[in-house]
Computed example of a mutant assay.
Amino acid sequence: MAIQVSTEILEGSVLSLLTREDYYGYAITREVQKVFPISESTMYPILRRLKKMGWLETYDQAYEGRNRRYYKITELGLDELTRIRANWKELREATDIILEGNDGN
C-alpha cells in the first residue's frame, strides 16, 4: 500500500479490534499488520496515546513466566470509535466522489 495511513485510522483500527476482545501489544500489532504495512515501533506510541487519552485501560497477565500487558477499550474509547467511524464514513464518501466520480447520481 503506497498511500500513508493516518494516525487516526490506526487509532480507530486499534479501538475497533479491542471491541472484540482484549489484546496484548504485540498481538494488536500483528492484527493491524494483516491490513496495513506498519512496524511494531509505530504501534506502541499509538497505544500509549490512546491510554493517556483515557480510551484504553491496561492490565497485566502472567504468560509463561512473564507478564503481558493487555489493552481494554473504555467507554470513552467506544465514544471515540463512534466519532472516528463517522469521520471515516464522511471522508470515504467525499473521496469516492473525487477519485471515482461516485457522486450518487
Rank of each mutant, 00 (worst) to 15 (best):
N102M: 09
D60R: 15
Q4P: 08
V14M: 07
T82N: 11
I98F: 07
F36I: 10
D22E: 11
W88T: 10
E64N: 11
E93W: 03
L47P: 05
A27E: 10
R49P: 03
L81W: 00
R68N: 09
Q61W: 11
G77M: 00
T82M: 09
I98R: 11
W88E: 15
A62E: 15
T82G: 09
G54N: 04
W88C: 08
P37T: 06
T29R: 12
T29C: 14
G104N: 08
R69F: 02
P37H: 07
N87H: 09
R92W: 08
T58P: 02
T74M: 00
E93M: 10
R68Q: 10
E100V: 11
S6V: 00
T42L: 15
G12M: 02
D96S: 10
I97C: 12
I3G: 13
I28C: 03
R68V: 05
E31Y: 08
E90N: 12
T19Y: 00
G12R: 01
T95N: 09
R69D: 06
S39L: 12
I97S: 13
S41V: 03
Q61K: 15
G65T: 03
I46G: 01
E57S: 10
E21K: 13
I9S: 07
N87G: 03
E100N: 14
A2R: 09
T82D: 13
S13N: 06
Y63N: 12
M43W: 01
I97E: 15
R66T: 12
S39G: 13
E93F: 05
T95I: 08
W88P: 02
E93D: 15
Y24V: 01
M53N: 14
E75L: 08
R69L: 11
A94W: 05
L18D: 04
L56E: 04
T42V: 11
T74E: 01
L78K: 15
I98D: 06
P45D: 03
G101V: 03
K34A: 12
Q4Y: 06
G101T: 06
E93N: 12
E8H: 07
E40Q: 13
S16D: 14
M53I: 08
W55L: 10
D96M: 10
K72I: 02
I97P: 05
